[in-house]
């Protein structure tokens, strides 16, 4: 009987076994990568059930309280710091002082027991992170934590993966803003609005279009990078010490 398969099929069949295995492995590997970036692993966008439903939306956007009123050490140390109960009671011993939802806060104050806030952001312990350097170099809270002023409950805006840190560290300049504006939310939009308003002519027509304002913004950021001394930082040892 004539051979159905040519002799070369011997090697082809071997190759296809190995190749198939490789494809399967790659697929599994890729799935693992996707899985590692999924909110299930990174906890991106996941809201925690906190002991008290503290609202940044209410306190930051509604009442206009500065981040540093509560996160007092953010400018000077690695940790931003979670406020002690006393900070809440500075207002809530008077405001909403009988509200049911604030009972855990009052109890914590009465009995000198910490409120057990659950961490929303948590880097692995082998990573070194420091808030103060980012604040000093003009990176806004918003660039990493998102629109905190629109969060009725705190959530993680970004993955906190290494690739996320590096994406900015490779080219940090487009994330810079003046130091005074670090705590502001929606700063870029404000910059556009202010620049446009400043360019109005006598008839109330803006003399600058969005492209020109964008260029102005980039020029400002280049200047800030020079003034604050901001460089690309991708050396492994700055984050893994």
């Amino acid at each position: 009987m004539a051979q159905i398969f040519h002799k070369s099929f011997n090697s082809l069949s071997k190759i296809s076994i190995v190749g198939g295995a490789l494809v399967a492995l790659t697929a599994v590997g890729y799935a693992a990568l996707l899985f590692n970036r999924s909110p299930y692993v990174t906890q991106q966008g996941v809201v925690r059930e906190q002991p008290v439903p503290f609202s940044h939306d209410h306190h930051v956007a509604g009442l206009g309280i500065d981040c540093r009123f509560c996160h007092t050490t953010v400018e000077v140390s690695a940790k931003a710091g979670i406020p002690p109960t006393k900070t809440c009671m500075g207002c809530h011993s008077q405001v909403w002082k009988d509200a049911e939802i604030l009972e855990p806060v009052r109890e914590s104050f009465r009995e000198d027991k910490s409120i057990e806030w659950l961490r929303v952001h948590d880097l692995p312990d082998f990573v070194y992170f420091d808030h103060s350097i980012h604040i000093k170099k003009g990176v806004g809270c918003e660039s990493c934590h998102g629109r905190v002023d629109r969060m009725p409950l705190m959530l993680r805006e970004n993955t906190l993966n290494m690739e996320w840190c590096l994406e900015c560290h490779r080219d940090p300049i487009k994330n810079l803003r003046p130091r005074e504006a670090v705590y502001e939310m929606d700063w870029t939009t404000q910059f556009f609005e202010k620049t446009r308003a400043a360019s109005l002519d006598a008839n109330g027509h803006p003399q600058k279009n969005d492209l020109e304002i964008q260029r102005e913004l980039e020029a400002l950021q280049q200047n800030l990078a020079r003034e604050y001394g901001v460089h690309t930082q991708v050396n492994c040892s700055i984050c893994h010490r």
């Binding site: 492995l25 599994v28 590997g29 693992a32 590692n36 710091g81 979670i82 692995p124 312990d125 082998f126």
Partner: peptide, 24 residues
């Protein structure tokens, strides 16, 4: 062995949560 490696990436290991004390 190679496919077993895949499963090590997804879990939090000891080095992620070291027993040292951190603020707060």
């Amino acid at each position: 062995l190679a496919s077993a490696l895949v499963f090590t990436t997804a879990c939090r290991q000891d080095m992620h949560d070291q027993p040292k004390y951190k603020a707060d």
